[in-house]
């Protein structure tokens, strides 16, 4: 999966001092896991990996360097690069200090789905190929093992890049059916669904902290004076937090699903921002993170702005 090319490119950028740091993935502390890593010397580029488990959105790691002078190369899947575009549009990071190594994304595999279908799994029993893997003497397509957020991915290719490594990929799906399944339920069913999901939330804020676009220095959830939300994870406080977060992401969410994959309780937390993005798309024909030029609809006022979604 172009791992060697990525290492070569990262090494080259560090050697010629085109960048000071490379942010990428390395193998995780558990099998079937990759974790973010920071590489600053050419020799260390060997630790970089690129596989079906490179889940975290690396754009999250740019902002700590905002006020430094470091030039950073970032490995970016389609959604990571979209998040970078939003950060650039919001003037959170200067374009000249970031070098995007774009990676057309084959989709992230859910370890849980692997275990559900294949039982107890060991890394050494797997042999990975371009579109699938060999395990237990059989060839498996990856489609049925993809994370839910990747099944509905429309933009596996980075919209912005300085180097692109790998072949461009077809879009995999969309969120239309998923949202329709929820919208078509009765009010009671929907209430029951959200109650069930949100009452499981322990408010660890992994969703917010994994999100590359939740970068407020002080989150409303942690504000002390006034205190908007209590520290007790009640259904009401949890709902307030997640609804508040979704509204704050309106017209900005790039649907990467980092929030959902970070959730230790496996709550379908990506659903709320996804619905908000659908409304934005239908009302303003706008999708976040696709272009550096297009104006963000909720940051610009036009007299003929549609307002049907406000009821």
């Amino acid at each position: 999966m172009f791992e060697q090319e990525i290492r070569r490119k990262a090494k080259e950028l560090l050697e010629v001092k085109a960048v000071d740091l490379v942010i990428g993935y390395t193998s995780g502390s558990l099998p079937f896991q990759a974790r973010p890593t920071l590489v600053s010397s050419p020799e260390d580029t060997e630790q970089l990996v690129w596989n079906h488990f490179c889940s975290p959105n690396l754009a999250r790691y740019l902002l700590p360097y905002r006020d430094s002078s470091k030039k950073i190369a970032l490995l970016a899947k389609g959604c990571d690069a979209r998040a970078v575009v939003v950060l650039l549009r919001e003037e959170q990071f200067p374009r000249e200090r970031i070098h995007i190594i774009g990676l057309p994304c084959p989709g992230i595999i859910s370890k849980r789905k692997l275990e559900e279908k294949l039982g107890e799994i060991k890394e050494e029993d797997f042999s990975w190929e371009e579109s699938g893997f060999l395990c237990q003497g059989k060839k498996w397509e990856i489609d049925s093992f993809l994370e839910d957020t990747c099944v509905r991915c429309r933009y596996p290719n980075p919209p912005l890049w300085d180097d692109l490594i790998g072949e461009k990929r077809e879009s995999r799906g969309s969120s239309v059916d998923y949202l329709e399944r929820i919208s078509s339920q009765s009010e009671e069913e929907r209430w029951q669904f959200f109650t069930q999901e949100l009452s499981r939330c322990i408010r660890c804020y992994a969703c917010r902290n994994a999100c590359p676009l939740c970068y407020c220095k002080e989150c409303f959830a942690e504000s002390d004076v006034p205190r908007w939300i209590s520290g007790v994870p009640t259904l009401s406080d949890n709902s307030f937090f997640h609804l508040g977060r979704s509204i704050h992401l309106a017209g900005r969410c790039v649907e990467c699903g980092a929030c959902e994959r970070a959730c230790p309780e496996e709550i379908k937390i990506g659903l709320l921002p996804l619905k908000v993005e659908e409304i934005i798309k239908n009302s303003f024909s706008f999708e976040a993170g696709l272009s550096l030029e297009e104006e963000a609809p909720l940051l610009t006022y036009k007299e003929n702005d549609p307002g049907e979604f406000i009821k």
Binding site: L38, Y61, R203, C204, A206, A210, S230, A262, P264
Partner: peptide, 28 residues
Amino acid sequence: NELSWRCLNCGACTFLCPTCYCFDIQVK
């Protein structure tokens, strides 16, 4: 620096830990 770099500062580890006992006192 290296060890902590990738930490998101979320509280998943502390809330799920059976030994973490820190609490806050708040008022409504």
